[in-house]
Design a protein around this nucleic acid. Structure first.
Lengths: 110, 110
DNA sequence: TACATTTATCGCAATATTGCGATAAATAAA
DNA sequence: TTTATTTATCGCAATATTGCGATAAATGTA
């Protein structure tokens, strides 16, 4: 995303877009699914789980991490990737707010 | 998104990714914000609201519509765009499920 | 130190997205 | 029908994303 483009929008809008964008690829949804399913989470496991090469998965993990959706701790010579709840709460409250807003409107339109 | 790429993932993963991707741009978040704020919703209004040209906004609306996040009804010589709650519920339950999954794990990792 | 394992980065090609000017299409109003 | 208003589409350039082979970096182990 270009540096100047985000200037036109609020920080909140940019953050939501960044989080949504990070989830906007089936492989990254699959990674989130897997991180939620297993207890110990190592990138190597994910490579065996998804139909993608290791560098590709590493890059997807990087994007999820940059967006704040996951965090990674060095654990021996592997890395333990985990879901970061903070970012998810942002998304969750976004959709909750929309639902509440829709209820408030109640068919004023369309 | 390439046609063959989605084959490797489940329909659910693809749907979630499609919805997230559609929200993965600040302009489209801003459009959702605006649709929620106003009662009557016409594309022309949005053009005045956002720092983007009319064809650009039309395209963003198209992407939101393709993803199922909004719906548009012809209303005179304008078009009434509205948020489609169905798609939002999919996203909302996705994040709710993750939250519940995280609670169930409760620090088994990291 | 040398080697194995695991993850990250580089560099590239293919593809997708973004933004917009020009223009078309659709409808309403005169 | 002519004109104005509103929205969609086309075509293009600029930029971003995706995927992966090759390779580097980091850490554990012998």
């Amino acid at each position: 995303m270009g540096a100047t483009k985000t200037d036109h929008f609020t920080p909140r809008q940019n953050q939501l877009a960044t989080l949504a964008k990070a989830l906007g690829h089936p492989a990254r949804i699959a990674i989130m699914d897997y991180l939620l399913k297993v207890d110990t989470c190592i990138c190597g496991d994910i490579v065996n789980e998804l139909p993608l090469a290791q560098p590709t998965i590493s890059q997807h993990l990087k994007e999820l991490k940059n967006a704040g959706l996951i965090k990674g701790n060095v654990e021996g010579n592997a890395i333990c990737y985990c879901i970061d709840e903070t970012a998810l709460e942002v998304m969750q409250s976004y959709f909750t707010n929309i639902s509440e807003g829709m209820l408030a409107k109640k068919s004023k339109c369309c």
